[in-house]
Amino acid sequence: MWTYEKRLQYPVKITQCNPKLAQVIMSQFGGPDGELAASQRYLSQRYTMSNPKVAGLLTDIGTEEMAHMEMVCAIVHQLTRDLTPQQIVEGGFEKYYVDHTLGLWPQSAGGIPFTATFFQSKGDPITDLIEDMAAEQKARTTYDNILRLVHDQEVCEPIKFLREREIIHFQRFGEALRMIQDDLDCKNFYAFNPSMDKECKK
């Protein structure tokens, strides 16, 4: 189960609204490489992760991704709260506003709604971990893309923190993949699915 702690993982305190930037950063909430997809990817995959240590890692990283989702939502919320109708129109926020007012709803920057097809849970530890490593790099690139558009230090700092976490997660998933492979026959890692074929352990 989970319990809530009344704090963010890293502080978000934004004083200047910016609806244009909010629309871009929103993609890391409900977009294809966003934090909602990341958390659900890892937390779905863990049930068939054959190595208990790696199942623990998926639980812990999946949990951290939920905290990141909360940070991204806090950024979007603080960039859009108190917007006037004039600022909404000038900031190009009217198409989002008409359906959601200033509420948070998971979609990509281009308006594509969040969908479970953004991630895979394949039930094969090697396949899933390689997807996870790619996912961390895609999220890191997205944060790099966002950082090129951000000039407000108050927004920049939490985005930089989130970007760094993608690199750490990538590193840990790489180690997890090696742990899975260490239990397999190095002549052919792909001969078996370690979560299906019990005879595969060397």
Binding site: Q9, Y10, E64
Partner: peptide, 21 residues
């Protein structure tokens, strides 16, 4: 509060490291 934030983050990061080490 800053102390709680900092120490919690160290533990968040260490937790992942210890999962694989």
């Amino acid at each position: 509060f800053a102390c709680i934030m900092a120490t919690s983050f160290v533990m968040d990061d260490l937790r992942l490291f210890l999962d694989t080490h």
